[in-house]
Amino acid sequence: MKQFIIVVLLVLQASFLFAQQEKKFIKKGNELYQQQNYKDAESSYRLSVGKKDKTVEGNFNLGDALYKQKKYAEAGAQFNKIASSSNNKEVLAKAYHNLGNSLLDSKKLEESIAAYKKSLLNNPQDDETRYNLAYAQKKLQQQKQQDKKNKDDKNKDKNKNDKDKKNQDDKNKDKDKKDQDKDKKNQDDKNKDQDKKDQQNGEQPQPNNVSKEDAERMLEALNNDEKQTQDKLKNKKLKGAKVNITKDW
């Protein structure tokens, strides 16, 4: 019995000492927090909660120190842990309020709205939470409107680019056709100039692109054929003619 009493006393004494240390670290953390030394305040609060996350105050203050350092993800996780481990409406309201703030600063508007609503379920009279909820809802509406505008502008730009591309293609086609017509005209003019020069030099333009030399050879061949034909006809005429023979009396 005496041993049991001694053990109980030792446990109570140890708990008292731990509680004293806890309060000491929380107090030191609060002093650092007031000095805006949030990093050291965070370290002190972590010592106050220890491995067992004992006090609600220490956990809340740790979350606040993380939030002040803009460690929004860590702060949100801390407040979410507090809310998950408590049934006290006051604690739940404050934890969800702070969770909503962390999510809001992380640009997670829909999640922050859900957190503020949970906070108001536990404390409907909290005007600050109600204001933050309205602010988050307005920001979400603006974001959706901006997203819609960006989408519409993107579609307009796409349509404009498609139209510009079509116009450019049409211009290119017109330019190609004009270039082709111009090249053809230049070639025709060049051919005319060449024909004119040939005529001035006593040369006749040859059809079907026959060269001067080829034309002369063809003409010579025709002349030779014609001469041979005339010679044949002459010989034939001489052979078939009637000959008068004079008899000697």
Rank of each mutant, 00 (worst) to 15 (best):
L133S: 10
V91E: 06
K158W: 03
N30P: 00
K27W: 04
L140N: 13
Q142F: 08
N123L: 02
P207E: 13
N208Y: 05
A83R: 11
K118E: 14
K160E: 14
V210E: 15
G29P: 07
Q21W: 08
S119T: 06
D53C: 01
K68R: 08
D169K: 07
K68Q: 15
E90R: 01
F79Q: 01
Q230G: 02
N59R: 15
V49A: 11
E90N: 06
Q180L: 13
S112P: 08
K149Y: 10
S43K: 14
L104Q: 03
E128A: 13
L66A: 06
N61F: 10
Q35R: 09
F79S: 00
N30T: 02
K163M: 04
K237L: 06
N235E: 15
K190Q: 11
M218W: 05
S106D: 07
K192S: 13
D105I: 02
N223T: 12
K185C: 05
E22Q: 14
E128M: 09
Q36I: 03
K173L: 12
G50E: 07
V210H: 04
K139A: 13
D225F: 11
K27L: 10
E111P: 02
E128S: 10
A215M: 09
G29V: 03
D170V: 11
D195I: 06
K171R: 12
Q137G: 09
L120F: 08
A77T: 04
Q141C: 00
V56W: 11
N80P: 02
K196G: 04
L66R: 06
K212T: 13
D231A: 14
V56A: 07
D248E: 09
G202E: 06
V49G: 01
K148N: 09
I6H: 09
K247W: 11
K177E: 10
L99C: 03
K107C: 05
T129A: 15
Q69T: 04
T129G: 01
V56N: 13
N201A: 11
N132I: 05
K117W: 00
K138S: 12
K89M: 11
Q35L: 13
N223D: 13
F79W: 05
K236M: 09
R217S: 15
E22L: 00
K139Q: 15
